[in-house]
Structure formats: C-alpha cells, structure tokens
Computed example of a mutant assay.
Amino acid sequence: MIILGVILLVVGLIIGMPILVTVGIIVAVIGLVLMVAGRTGHAVGGRSHYF
C-alpha cells in the first residue's frame, strides 16, 4: 500500500491532478499505519504481520 500511495502521489504531481495526490497521500498513510501496527505485535486483519 505504501508503494501504491507513492506511485499515485508521483503520477498525480506529474500529471497535475490534485485528486491523485490526495488519494496517494491517504493510501500511503494507511499503509504506514498498518505497517507500524503490524510491527508492534498487533494482529492486523487477522494477520500477525503485515507486508
């Protein structure tokens, strides 16, 4: 999710579409939150780790 968010962010900046930039930021932040939650030992979505 983090990589997808960064890709959307870059494409949105290159094309000039602010909606893609916004969606890219949101997706990247959600990916980072899931990664941090998974690394602290909490099960995320029924998984003990989240890649």
Results as ranks from 00 to 15, higher is better:
residue 5 G to P: 11
residue 13 L to Q: 11
residue 7 I to N: 01
residue 28 A to T: 13
residue 41 G to N: 02
residue 2 I to W: 01
residue 25 I to C: 11
residue 12 G to I: 02
residue 32 L to S: 13
residue 27 V to D: 00
residue 29 V to I: 15
residue 4 L to H: 05
residue 5 G to D: 10
residue 40 T to I: 15
residue 8 L to W: 05
residue 19 I to D: 10
residue 37 A to G: 07
residue 36 V to Q: 02
residue 34 L to T: 05
residue 1 M to L: 13
residue 8 L to E: 06
residue 35 M to W: 10
residue 23 V to D: 05
residue 19 I to S: 10
residue 38 G to S: 13
residue 40 T to R: 11
residue 16 G to S: 04
residue 18 P to G: 14
residue 3 I to E: 13
residue 11 V to T: 08
residue 3 I to V: 14
residue 16 G to C: 05
residue 39 R to Q: 11
residue 26 I to T: 15
residue 37 A to L: 14
residue 32 L to D: 06
residue 1 M to A: 14
residue 36 V to P: 10
residue 23 V to F: 04
residue 15 I to T: 06
residue 35 M to S: 14
residue 23 V to G: 03
residue 35 M to G: 14
residue 6 V to W: 07
residue 25 I to A: 12
residue 11 V to M: 12
residue 4 L to E: 04
residue 23 V to T: 08
residue 32 L to G: 15
residue 24 G to Y: 00
residue 8 L to G: 13
residue 12 G to N: 02
residue 5 G to F: 00
residue 21 V to Q: 04
residue 31 G to W: 01
residue 34 L to Q: 15
residue 3 I to N: 06
residue 40 T to P: 04
residue 20 L to I: 09
residue 14 I to S: 07
residue 4 L to R: 02
residue 22 T to I: 15
residue 6 V to P: 03
residue 8 L to P: 08
residue 30 I to W: 06
residue 13 L to K: 07
residue 13 L to E: 14
residue 24 G to V: 08
residue 13 L to V: 14
residue 39 R to N: 13
residue 31 G to E: 01
residue 32 L to C: 13
residue 12 G to C: 03
residue 11 V to E: 04
residue 38 G to T: 09
residue 16 G to K: 03
